[in-house]
Nucleic acid binder design. Sequence first.
DNA 1: CGTGCCTTTGACCATCCGGTCAAATCGCGC
DNA 2: GCGCGATTTGACCGGATGGTCAAAGGCACG
Lengths: 206, 206
Amino acid sequence: MAQDAGAAPRTRTQTRNRAAILEAGLEVFSEKGFRGATLEEIARRARLSKPNLLYYYPSKEAVHLALLENLLDAWLAPLVALDPAGDPVEEVLLYLRRKLALSRDYPRESRLFAGEILRGAPHLGPVLGGRLATLVADKAAVLRGWMDQGRLARLPPEHLIFSIWALTQHYADFDVQVRAVLGAGRDPYAEAGPFLETLFRRLLAP
Amino acid sequence: MAQDAGAAPRTRTQTRNRAAILEAGLEVFSEKGFRGATLEEIARRARLSKPNLLYYYPSKEAVHLALLENLLDAWLAPLVALDPAGDPVEEVLLYLRRKLALSRDYPRESRLFAGEILRGAPHLGPVLGGRLATLVADKAAVLRGWMDQGRLARLPPEHLIFSIWALTQHYADFDVQVRAVLGAGRDPYAEAGPFLETLFRRLLAP
DNA sequence: CGTGCCTTTGACCATCCGGTCAAATCGCGC
DNA sequence: GCGCGATTTGACCGGATGGTCAAAGGCACG
Protein backbone atom coordinates (compact mmCIF):
# COMPACT_ATOMS: atom_id res chain seq x y z
CA MET A 1 0.00 0.00 0.00
CA ALA A 2 1.16 3.48 -0.86
CA GLN A 3 -2.05 5.43 -0.35
CA ASP A 4 -0.85 7.75 2.37
CA ALA A 5 0.33 10.76 0.43
CA GLY A 6 1.82 12.30 3.51
CA ALA A 7 4.10 9.41 4.40
CA ALA A 8 7.71 9.36 3.26
CA PRO A 9 8.30 7.05 0.28
CA ARG A 10 10.04 3.84 1.27
CA THR A 11 11.21 2.27 -1.94
CA ARG A 12 13.11 3.57 -4.95
CA THR A 13 10.05 2.97 -7.10
CA GLN A 14 7.92 5.11 -4.82
CA THR A 15 10.42 7.93 -4.88
CA ARG A 16 10.75 7.86 -8.64
CA ASN A 17 7.06 7.59 -9.43
CA ARG A 18 5.95 10.19 -6.94
CA ALA A 19 8.50 12.60 -8.34
CA ALA A 20 7.36 11.87 -11.89
CA ILE A 21 3.75 12.47 -10.91
CA LEU A 22 4.55 15.78 -9.26
CA GLU A 23 6.59 16.92 -12.23
CA ALA A 24 3.82 15.94 -14.64
CA GLY A 25 1.18 17.45 -12.39
CA LEU A 26 3.05 20.73 -12.20
CA GLU A 27 3.29 20.85 -15.97
CA VAL A 28 -0.37 20.13 -16.58
CA PHE A 29 -1.92 22.01 -13.65
CA SER A 30 0.11 25.14 -14.34
CA GLU A 31 -0.87 25.10 -17.98
CA LYS A 32 -4.54 24.12 -17.78
CA GLY A 33 -5.56 24.91 -14.23
CA PHE A 34 -7.10 22.47 -11.77
CA ARG A 35 -10.31 21.90 -13.66
CA GLY A 36 -8.68 21.88 -17.06
CA ALA A 37 -6.15 19.24 -16.09
CA THR A 38 -7.03 15.56 -16.48
CA LEU A 39 -5.64 12.59 -14.62
CA GLU A 40 -5.24 10.88 -17.96
CA GLU A 41 -2.81 13.52 -19.19
CA ILE A 42 -0.88 13.74 -15.96
CA ALA A 43 -0.53 9.97 -15.91
CA ARG A 44 0.61 9.90 -19.53
CA ARG A 45 3.31 12.52 -18.90
CA ALA A 46 4.47 10.58 -15.87
CA ARG A 47 4.56 7.42 -18.03
CA LEU A 48 2.07 5.68 -15.78
CA SER A 49 -1.42 4.32 -16.23
CA LYS A 50 -4.24 6.26 -14.64
CA PRO A 51 -5.01 3.65 -11.98
CA ASN A 52 -1.31 3.45 -11.25
CA LEU A 53 -1.22 7.18 -10.59
CA LEU A 54 -4.18 6.79 -8.26
CA TYR A 55 -2.15 4.15 -6.45
CA TYR A 56 0.35 6.81 -5.41
CA TYR A 57 -2.03 9.71 -4.86
CA PRO A 58 -5.59 8.90 -3.88
CA SER A 59 -7.16 11.67 -5.95
CA LYS A 60 -6.60 14.54 -8.34
CA GLU A 61 -6.90 16.94 -5.46
CA ALA A 62 -4.20 15.09 -3.55
CA VAL A 63 -1.71 15.69 -6.35
CA HIS A 64 -2.66 19.33 -6.57
CA LEU A 65 -2.40 19.77 -2.83
CA ALA A 66 0.96 18.03 -2.65
CA LEU A 67 2.28 20.40 -5.30
CA LEU A 68 1.05 23.51 -3.51
CA GLU A 69 2.46 22.37 -0.20
CA ASN A 70 5.85 21.50 -1.68
CA LEU A 71 5.87 24.83 -3.41
CA LEU A 72 5.17 26.97 -0.43
CA ASP A 73 8.56 26.64 1.25
CA ALA A 74 10.53 27.46 -1.89
CA TRP A 75 8.18 30.30 -2.60
CA LEU A 76 8.49 31.92 0.78
CA ALA A 77 12.20 31.23 1.23
CA PRO A 78 13.40 34.54 -0.24
CA LEU A 79 11.27 36.51 2.19
CA VAL A 80 12.33 34.31 5.08
CA ALA A 81 15.91 35.11 4.12
CA LEU A 82 15.39 38.86 4.58
CA ASP A 83 18.04 39.59 7.17
CA PRO A 84 17.28 42.14 9.92
CA ALA A 85 21.03 42.49 10.47
CA GLY A 86 21.79 43.39 6.86
CA ASP A 87 21.81 46.70 5.06
CA PRO A 88 18.17 47.77 4.53
CA VAL A 89 18.22 48.79 0.87
CA GLU A 90 20.52 45.95 -0.12
CA GLU A 91 18.40 43.41 1.75
CA VAL A 92 15.25 44.46 -0.06
CA LEU A 93 17.05 44.47 -3.39
CA LEU A 94 18.38 41.01 -2.62
CA TYR A 95 14.84 39.89 -1.95
CA LEU A 96 13.76 41.44 -5.23
CA ARG A 97 16.50 39.63 -7.15
CA ARG A 98 15.71 36.30 -5.54
CA LYS A 99 12.03 36.70 -6.30
CA LEU A 100 12.67 37.66 -9.90
CA ALA A 101 14.95 34.63 -10.25
CA LEU A 102 12.10 32.43 -9.02
CA SER A 103 9.82 33.85 -11.72
CA ARG A 104 12.48 33.28 -14.34
CA ASP A 105 13.50 29.78 -13.26
CA TYR A 106 10.18 28.45 -11.99
CA PRO A 107 7.43 30.03 -14.06
CA ARG A 108 5.24 26.93 -13.85
CA GLU A 109 5.29 27.10 -10.07
CA SER A 110 4.41 30.78 -10.24
CA ARG A 111 1.46 30.11 -12.51
CA LEU A 112 0.25 27.22 -10.38
CA PHE A 113 0.24 29.57 -7.43
CA ALA A 114 -1.39 32.39 -9.33
CA GLY A 115 -4.18 30.12 -10.51
CA GLU A 116 -4.87 29.00 -6.97
CA ILE A 117 -5.04 32.55 -5.61
CA LEU A 118 -7.01 33.83 -8.58
CA ARG A 119 -9.74 31.26 -7.87
CA GLY A 120 -9.97 32.42 -4.29
CA ALA A 121 -7.41 30.01 -2.82
CA PRO A 122 -9.86 27.08 -2.40
CA HIS A 123 -7.03 24.78 -1.33
CA LEU A 124 -4.51 26.83 0.59
CA GLY A 125 -6.90 29.42 1.92
CA PRO A 126 -6.04 28.79 5.59
CA VAL A 127 -2.32 29.08 4.87
CA LEU A 128 -2.75 32.63 3.63
CA GLY A 129 -4.26 33.91 6.81
CA GLY A 130 -1.89 31.73 8.83
CA ARG A 131 1.72 31.10 7.90
CA LEU A 132 1.83 33.74 5.17
CA ALA A 133 0.19 36.50 7.19
CA THR A 134 2.50 35.75 10.11
CA LEU A 135 5.61 35.80 7.98
CA VAL A 136 4.65 39.06 6.33
CA ALA A 137 3.79 40.64 9.67
CA ASP A 138 7.20 39.57 10.95
CA LYS A 139 9.11 41.02 8.01
CA ALA A 140 6.92 44.11 7.88
CA ALA A 141 8.07 44.79 11.43
CA VAL A 142 11.68 44.54 10.31
CA LEU A 143 11.03 46.98 7.49
CA ARG A 144 9.23 49.36 9.80
CA GLY A 145 12.20 49.23 12.17
CA TRP A 146 14.52 50.26 9.37
CA MET A 147 12.17 53.07 8.42
CA ASP A 148 12.06 54.28 12.03
CA GLN A 149 15.84 54.41 11.98
CA GLY A 150 15.74 56.47 8.79
CA ARG A 151 17.61 53.82 6.85
CA LEU A 152 14.73 53.18 4.45
CA ALA A 153 12.10 55.48 2.96
CA ARG A 154 8.90 55.48 5.00
CA LEU A 155 6.31 53.40 3.16
CA PRO A 156 3.54 50.99 4.13
CA PRO A 157 5.68 47.85 4.53
CA GLU A 158 3.00 45.34 3.46
CA HIS A 159 2.42 47.23 0.24
CA LEU A 160 6.14 47.36 -0.36
CA ILE A 161 6.14 43.57 -0.19
CA PHE A 162 3.07 43.38 -2.42
CA SER A 163 4.85 45.51 -4.99
CA ILE A 164 7.75 43.09 -5.12
CA TRP A 165 5.39 40.17 -5.52
CA ALA A 166 3.36 41.91 -8.20
CA LEU A 167 6.30 43.16 -10.24
CA THR A 168 8.25 39.90 -10.24
CA GLN A 169 5.39 37.43 -10.63
CA HIS A 170 3.94 39.46 -13.47
CA TYR A 171 6.76 38.32 -15.73
CA ALA A 172 5.99 34.66 -15.09
CA ASP A 173 2.20 34.76 -14.85
CA PHE A 174 1.61 37.06 -17.82
CA ASP A 175 4.49 35.73 -19.84
CA VAL A 176 2.48 35.44 -23.08
CA GLN A 177 1.37 39.05 -22.82
CA VAL A 178 4.85 40.32 -22.00
CA ARG A 179 6.34 38.48 -24.96
CA ALA A 180 3.54 39.54 -27.29
CA VAL A 181 4.14 43.18 -26.41
CA LEU A 182 7.93 43.07 -26.48
CA GLY A 183 8.01 41.03 -29.67
CA ALA A 184 10.35 38.13 -30.41
CA GLY A 185 14.07 38.39 -29.89
CA ARG A 186 13.92 40.31 -26.63
CA ASP A 187 14.68 38.83 -23.23
CA PRO A 188 12.03 40.02 -20.76
CA TYR A 189 14.01 39.07 -17.67
CA ALA A 190 17.26 40.63 -18.84
CA GLU A 191 15.41 43.93 -19.25
CA ALA A 192 13.25 43.58 -16.14
CA GLY A 193 16.23 43.08 -13.80
CA PRO A 194 17.86 46.50 -14.22
CA PHE A 195 14.50 48.25 -14.51
CA LEU A 196 13.18 46.86 -11.25
CA GLU A 197 16.50 47.50 -9.55
CA THR A 198 16.28 51.15 -10.56
CA LEU A 199 12.67 51.35 -9.51
CA PHE A 200 13.32 50.05 -6.02
CA ARG A 201 16.51 52.00 -5.50
CA ARG A 202 14.63 55.22 -6.18
CA LEU A 203 11.68 54.14 -4.07
CA LEU A 204 13.67 52.97 -1.08
CA ALA A 205 16.33 55.66 -0.72
CA PRO A 206 15.61 57.34 2.63
CA MET B 1 -33.70 33.16 -34.48
CA ALA B 2 -31.15 34.87 -32.31
CA GLN B 3 -28.11 32.72 -32.94
CA ASP B 4 -25.84 35.36 -34.38
CA ALA B 5 -23.97 36.55 -31.32
CA GLY B 6 -22.39 39.41 -33.24
CA ALA B 7 -25.64 40.97 -34.41
CA ALA B 8 -27.22 43.80 -32.50
CA PRO B 9 -30.18 42.66 -30.38
CA ARG B 10 -33.50 43.70 -31.93
CA THR B 11 -36.05 43.26 -29.18
CA ARG B 12 -36.21 44.28 -25.54
CA THR B 13 -36.16 40.61 -24.55
CA GLN B 14 -32.95 40.05 -26.49
CA THR B 15 -31.29 43.04 -24.90
CA ARG B 16 -32.33 42.03 -21.40
CA ASN B 17 -31.42 38.36 -21.70
CA ARG B 18 -28.11 38.92 -23.40
CA ALA B 19 -27.15 41.38 -20.70
CA ALA B 20 -28.22 38.93 -17.99
CA ILE B 21 -26.16 36.17 -19.59
CA LEU B 22 -23.06 38.33 -19.83
CA GLU B 23 -23.44 39.46 -16.23
CA ALA B 24 -23.88 35.88 -15.04
CA GLY B 25 -21.06 34.67 -17.27
CA LEU B 26 -18.72 37.30 -15.91
CA GLU B 27 -19.55 36.27 -12.37
CA VAL B 28 -19.05 32.57 -12.96
CA PHE B 29 -16.12 32.67 -15.39
CA SER B 30 -14.16 35.10 -13.24
CA GLU B 31 -14.71 32.96 -10.18
CA LYS B 32 -14.24 29.47 -11.60
CA GLY B 33 -12.33 29.97 -14.83
CA PHE B 34 -13.45 28.78 -18.25
CA ARG B 35 -13.26 25.08 -17.52
CA GLY B 36 -14.61 25.38 -14.02
CA ALA B 37 -17.68 27.27 -15.14
CA THR B 38 -20.79 25.35 -16.22
CA LEU B 39 -23.55 26.47 -18.55
CA GLU B 40 -25.99 25.24 -15.97
CA GLU B 41 -24.74 27.70 -13.35
CA ILE B 42 -24.48 30.62 -15.75
CA ALA B 43 -28.03 29.94 -16.92
CA ARG B 44 -29.32 29.70 -13.36
CA ARG B 45 -27.77 33.04 -12.39
CA ALA B 46 -29.26 34.62 -15.49
CA ARG B 47 -32.64 33.10 -14.53
CA LEU B 48 -32.78 31.17 -17.77
CA SER B 49 -32.89 27.51 -18.66
CA LYS B 50 -29.76 26.02 -20.20
CA PRO B 51 -31.28 25.55 -23.68
CA ASN B 52 -32.60 29.07 -23.46
CA LEU B 53 -29.12 30.38 -22.83
CA LEU B 54 -27.89 28.44 -25.84
CA TYR B 55 -30.61 30.16 -27.83
CA TYR B 56 -28.85 33.49 -27.30
CA TYR B 57 -25.24 32.33 -27.46
CA PRO B 58 -24.48 29.23 -29.52
CA SER B 59 -21.87 27.85 -27.12
CA LYS B 60 -20.03 28.30 -23.87
CA GLU B 61 -17.08 29.65 -25.78
CA ALA B 62 -19.28 32.25 -27.45
CA VAL B 63 -20.26 33.69 -24.07
CA HIS B 64 -16.66 33.71 -22.92
CA LEU B 65 -15.50 35.35 -26.12
CA ALA B 66 -18.23 37.99 -26.02
CA LEU B 67 -17.14 38.89 -22.50
CA LEU B 68 -13.48 39.21 -23.42
CA GLU B 69 -14.24 41.32 -26.46
CA ASN B 70 -16.57 43.64 -24.56
CA LEU B 71 -13.93 43.93 -21.90
CA LEU B 72 -11.05 44.85 -24.10
CA ASP B 73 -12.12 48.38 -24.92
CA ALA B 74 -12.80 49.34 -21.33
CA TRP B 75 -9.56 47.72 -20.30
CA LEU B 76 -7.40 49.54 -22.78
CA ALA B 77 -9.20 52.88 -22.54
CA PRO B 78 -6.97 54.34 -19.81
CA LEU B 79 -3.86 53.72 -21.88
CA VAL B 80 -5.53 55.10 -25.00
CA ALA B 81 -6.30 58.23 -23.01
CA LEU B 82 -2.61 58.87 -22.30
CA ASP B 83 -2.25 62.32 -23.82
CA PRO B 84 0.99 63.22 -25.66
CA ALA B 85 0.12 66.90 -25.15
CA GLY B 86 -0.19 66.62 -21.38
CA ASP B 87 2.37 66.90 -18.64
CA PRO B 88 4.50 63.70 -18.65
CA VAL B 89 4.54 62.79 -14.96
CA GLU B 90 0.92 63.81 -14.46
CA GLU B 91 -0.21 61.84 -17.51
CA VAL B 92 1.42 58.66 -16.25
CA LEU B 93 0.00 59.20 -12.80
CA LEU B 94 -3.41 59.75 -14.32
CA TYR B 95 -3.04 56.47 -16.14
CA LEU B 96 -2.04 54.80 -12.90
CA ARG B 97 -5.09 56.17 -11.10
CA ARG B 98 -7.45 55.12 -13.86
CA LYS B 99 -5.99 51.65 -13.90
CA LEU B 100 -6.20 51.26 -10.14
CA ALA B 101 -9.81 52.43 -10.28
CA LEU B 102 -10.53 49.66 -12.81
CA SER B 103 -9.08 47.09 -10.42
CA ARG B 104 -11.15 48.47 -7.58
CA ASP B 105 -14.41 48.83 -9.47
CA TYR B 106 -14.17 45.89 -11.87
CA PRO B 107 -12.26 43.12 -10.11
CA ARG B 108 -14.24 40.39 -11.86
CA GLU B 109 -13.22 41.74 -15.22
CA SER B 110 -9.62 41.86 -14.08
CA ARG B 111 -9.72 38.26 -12.93
CA LEU B 112 -11.41 37.12 -16.12
CA PHE B 113 -8.59 38.72 -18.04
CA ALA B 114 -5.90 37.35 -15.77
CA GLY B 115 -7.27 33.83 -16.13
CA GLU B 116 -7.21 34.09 -19.89
CA ILE B 117 -3.61 35.31 -19.99
CA LEU B 118 -2.48 32.86 -17.34
CA ARG B 119 -3.67 29.97 -19.50
CA GLY B 120 -1.69 31.26 -22.44
CA ALA B 121 -4.43 33.44 -23.96
CA PRO B 122 -6.13 30.61 -25.90
CA HIS B 123 -8.95 32.93 -26.96
CA LEU B 124 -7.52 36.38 -27.42
CA GLY B 125 -4.02 35.33 -28.37
CA PRO B 126 -4.02 37.18 -31.70
CA VAL B 127 -5.24 40.38 -30.04
CA LEU B 128 -2.15 40.50 -27.84
CA GLY B 129 0.29 40.53 -30.70
CA GLY B 130 -2.04 42.79 -32.70
CA ARG B 131 -4.07 45.58 -31.18
CA LEU B 132 -2.39 45.46 -27.79
CA ALA B 133 1.17 45.37 -29.11
CA THR B 134 0.39 48.22 -31.48
CA LEU B 135 -1.16 50.35 -28.77
CA VAL B 136 1.75 49.77 -26.40
CA ALA B 137 4.27 50.52 -29.14
CA ASP B 138 2.42 53.75 -29.84
CA LYS B 139 2.36 54.89 -26.23
CA ALA B 140 5.91 53.67 -25.62
CA ALA B 141 6.96 56.07 -28.36
CA VAL B 142 5.20 58.91 -26.55
CA LEU B 143 6.97 58.00 -23.31
CA ARG B 144 10.31 57.79 -25.09
CA GLY B 145 9.73 61.21 -26.57
CA TRP B 146 9.17 62.65 -23.12
CA MET B 147 12.32 60.94 -21.88
CA ASP B 148 14.31 62.34 -24.79
CA GLN B 149 13.10 65.80 -23.80
CA GLY B 150 14.26 65.19 -20.25
CA ARG B 151 10.73 65.54 -18.91
CA LEU B 152 10.58 61.97 -17.61
CA ALA B 153 13.23 59.68 -16.11
CA ARG B 154 14.84 57.48 -18.74
CA LEU B 155 13.42 53.97 -18.38
CA PRO B 156 12.43 51.15 -20.72
CA PRO B 157 8.91 52.38 -21.60
CA GLU B 158 7.33 48.96 -22.10
CA HIS B 159 8.47 47.86 -18.68
CA LEU B 160 7.17 51.05 -17.20
CA ILE B 161 3.77 50.12 -18.61
CA PHE B 162 4.12 46.55 -17.36
CA SER B 163 4.83 47.86 -13.88
CA ILE B 164 1.60 49.83 -13.89
CA TRP B 165 -0.33 46.78 -15.05
CA ALA B 166 1.32 44.51 -12.51
CA LEU B 167 0.93 46.82 -9.53
CA THR B 168 -2.69 47.73 -10.14
CA GLN B 169 -4.03 44.37 -11.29
CA HIS B 170 -2.36 42.64 -8.38
CA TYR B 171 -4.91 44.15 -6.01
CA ALA B 172 -7.81 42.69 -8.00
CA ASP B 173 -6.33 39.37 -9.09
CA PHE B 174 -4.75 38.45 -5.77
CA ASP B 175 -7.45 40.04 -3.68
CA VAL B 176 -7.78 37.07 -1.29
CA GLN B 177 -4.07 37.11 -0.59
CA VAL B 178 -3.93 40.87 -0.09
CA ARG B 179 -6.83 40.75 2.34
CA ALA B 180 -5.47 37.73 4.16
CA VAL B 181 -2.16 39.51 4.71
CA LEU B 182 -3.60 42.89 5.64
CA GLY B 183 -6.25 41.40 7.89
CA ALA B 184 -9.85 42.49 8.16
CA GLY B 185 -10.77 46.11 8.66
CA ARG B 186 -8.21 47.55 6.29
CA ASP B 187 -9.01 48.97 2.88
CA PRO B 188 -6.41 47.72 0.38
CA TYR B 189 -7.23 50.29 -2.27
CA ALA B 190 -7.24 53.24 0.08
CA GLU B 191 -3.71 52.28 1.11
CA ALA B 192 -2.50 51.30 -2.36
CA GLY B 193 -3.43 54.62 -3.95
CA PRO B 194 -1.01 56.85 -2.05
CA PHE B 195 1.68 54.17 -1.99
CA LEU B 196 1.65 53.70 -5.75
CA GLU B 197 1.47 57.42 -6.30
CA THR B 198 4.63 57.85 -4.22
CA LEU B 199 6.31 54.97 -5.98
CA PHE B 200 5.76 56.39 -9.44
CA ARG B 201 6.52 59.97 -8.50
CA ARG B 202 9.94 58.86 -7.26
CA LEU B 203 10.49 56.63 -10.25
CA LEU B 204 9.46 59.12 -12.89
CA ALA B 205 11.04 62.35 -11.71
CA PRO B 206 13.62 63.25 -14.34
C1' DC C 1 11.28 -22.30 -6.46
C1' DG C 2 7.84 -20.69 -3.62
C1' DT C 3 5.72 -17.27 -0.78
C1' DG C 4 4.07 -12.81 0.11
C1' DC C 5 4.08 -8.06 -0.66
C1' DC C 6 4.59 -4.20 -3.77
C1' DT C 7 3.25 -2.55 -8.20
C1' DT C 8 0.65 -2.35 -12.47
C1' DT C 9 -3.27 -2.63 -15.44
C1' DG C 10 -7.64 -3.54 -18.36
C1' DA C 11 -12.23 -3.19 -17.82
C1' DC C 12 -15.72 -0.89 -15.91
C1' DC C 13 -18.89 2.53 -13.52
C1' DA C 14 -21.27 6.83 -12.32
C1' DT C 15 -21.48 11.39 -12.98
C1' DC C 16 -21.03 15.63 -15.11
C1' DC C 17 -21.61 18.55 -18.79
C1' DG C 18 -21.94 20.82 -23.41
C1' DG C 19 -25.04 20.69 -26.77
C1' DT C 20 -29.52 19.12 -29.62
C1' DC C 21 -34.38 18.82 -30.69
C1' DA C 22 -39.09 18.79 -31.08
C1' DA C 23 -42.75 20.54 -28.96
C1' DA C 24 -45.05 24.00 -26.16
C1' DT C 25 -45.88 28.79 -25.01
C1' DC C 26 -45.78 33.63 -25.50
C1' DG C 27 -46.93 38.03 -27.32
C1' DC C 28 -47.09 41.41 -31.06
C1' DG C 29 -49.44 43.19 -35.16
C1' DC C 30 -53.55 42.86 -37.56
C1' DG D 1 -58.92 36.63 -31.12
C1' DC D 2 -56.01 34.94 -34.71
C1' DG D 3 -51.78 33.95 -37.06
C1' DC D 4 -47.04 33.59 -36.79
C1' DG D 5 -42.50 34.37 -35.58
C1' DA D 6 -39.94 34.84 -31.18
C1' DT D 7 -38.98 32.58 -27.02
C1' DT D 8 -38.81 28.85 -23.69
C1' DT D 9 -38.33 24.22 -22.05
C1' DG D 10 -38.23 19.05 -20.73
C1' DA D 11 -36.15 15.21 -22.30
C1' DC D 12 -32.38 13.35 -24.17
C1' DC D 13 -27.59 12.23 -26.22
C1' DG D 14 -22.70 11.31 -26.39
C1' DG D 15 -18.29 12.07 -24.87
C1' DA D 16 -15.15 13.12 -21.22
C1' DT D 17 -13.46 12.18 -16.82
C1' DG D 18 -12.57 10.98 -11.82
C1' DG D 19 -12.40 7.02 -9.54
C1' DT D 20 -12.98 1.61 -8.42
C1' DC D 21 -11.84 -3.24 -8.56
C1' DA D 22 -10.23 -7.64 -9.11
C1' DA D 23 -6.77 -9.90 -11.13
C1' DA D 24 -2.17 -10.20 -13.03
C1' DG D 25 2.82 -9.34 -12.91
C1' DG D 26 7.19 -8.52 -10.74
C1' DC D 27 10.56 -8.89 -7.19
C1' DA D 28 13.04 -9.86 -2.81
C1' DC D 29 14.04 -13.21 0.31
C1' DG D 30 13.83 -17.68 2.55
